[in-house]
């Protein structure tokens, strides 16, 4: 028991951990190279250049891309405004002491999370106007309401989790200073929850951006085209290389979503990791 000597366990000699790590890395790079070569070799490049990377087609649609880009951003922003406002109301309803509010909010979330967004957009385009005898003043209003209501269901859950993650002591401190529960919510809880929900909320905006493509079911006039509708239009109206339009709008989508992620990271840094620093 007191002997200082240690006997190594029996077994075959193995590679040292350092050598094993190097070997594993070589294998991983090898797999990657094989895949890239297979894809490049398997592609019909001359056909691709004509159909998918056709510069002539790019020139033809170039003048239309800016307004379609602006439309997509506009639809996304207005739908998000609706989603955020409604989502916050739903989150507060879920935390309400009134049981009926909790039931209504839960029912709402379950319904709009479980139904395809496409159906909701169709409903707002064709059913709601008939049912309530309303005419939405613009496509933007329709899409903002339809997508906003779907997105609100997802945001409600995210925001509720964020509000509940603020420590109970924060509420107690505010209430013990005489602040009402409303003042406590607005000045203490919501600002702190905001930081925590920033990443999942950004995720929701990215999803919304892509969901605006569902607007195609509404039957749009050309000036109301979003990026995806423009790509389909281009596909049908150029002789060759129509598929190029999808590459162009794909890049345009990334030009919206990637800066968004960068903005979130910046906001997160700005607000610090532990509250403020």
């Amino acid at each position: 028991m007191t002997s200082p000597s240690v006997t190594m366990p029996p077994g075959r000699a193995r590679m040292s951990p350092r050598k094993r790590a190097r070997y594993s890395r070589v294998v991983q790079y090898g797999v990657l190279v094989v895949i890239v070569v297979a894809v490049v070799m398997g592609t019909d490049w001359s056909n691709m250049r004509e159909q998918v990377f056709n510069l002539e087609a790019v020139q033809k649609m170039a003048s239309d891309v800016p307004y379609a880009f602006v439309n997509t951003v506009k639809y996304t922003a207005s739908a998000f405004a609706v989603a955020l406002a409604l989502g916050l109301v739903l989150a507060l309803m879920k935390l309400s002491s009134v049981r009926l509010y909790r039931i209504v909010a839960t029912g709402y979330v379950e319904f709009f999370r479980g139904v395809p967004a496409l159906l909701v957009v169709l409903a707002f385009a064709y059913i709601v106007p008939v049912a309530f005898q309303v005419r939405f003043s613009s496509v933007t209003v329709t899409i903002a309401l339809a997508l906003g209501m779907v997105s609100a269901a997802y945001l409600a859950e995210t925001l509720r989790a964020g509000l509940q993650a603020v420590p109970k002591g924060q509420v107690e401190a505010a209430r013990s200073l005489g602040m009402t529960s409303g003042q406590t919510m607005r000045s203490v809880v919501i600002p702190q929850a905001f930081r925590m929900v920033l990443p999942p909320v950004t995720n929701e905006i990215v999803l919304l951006t892509k969901d605006t493509s569902l607007i195609y079911v509404m039957g749009l006039a050309v000036p109301d085209y979003d990026l995806t509708r423009l790509a389909r239009y281009t596909l049908n109206n150029v002789a060759v290389g129509g598929l190029t339009a999808f590459v162009v709008v794909g890049i345009a989508y990334l030009m919206i979503t990637i800066p968004l992620s960068a903005l979130t990271r910046w906001l997160e840094r700005k607000t610090g990791s532990k509250g403020h620093v």
Partner: peptide, 15 residues
Amino acid sequence: THVGMVFQQFNLFPH
């Protein structure tokens, strides 16, 4: 409003 309270965990508003 007339009763101040000090907590074990301070509970300052971090933001």
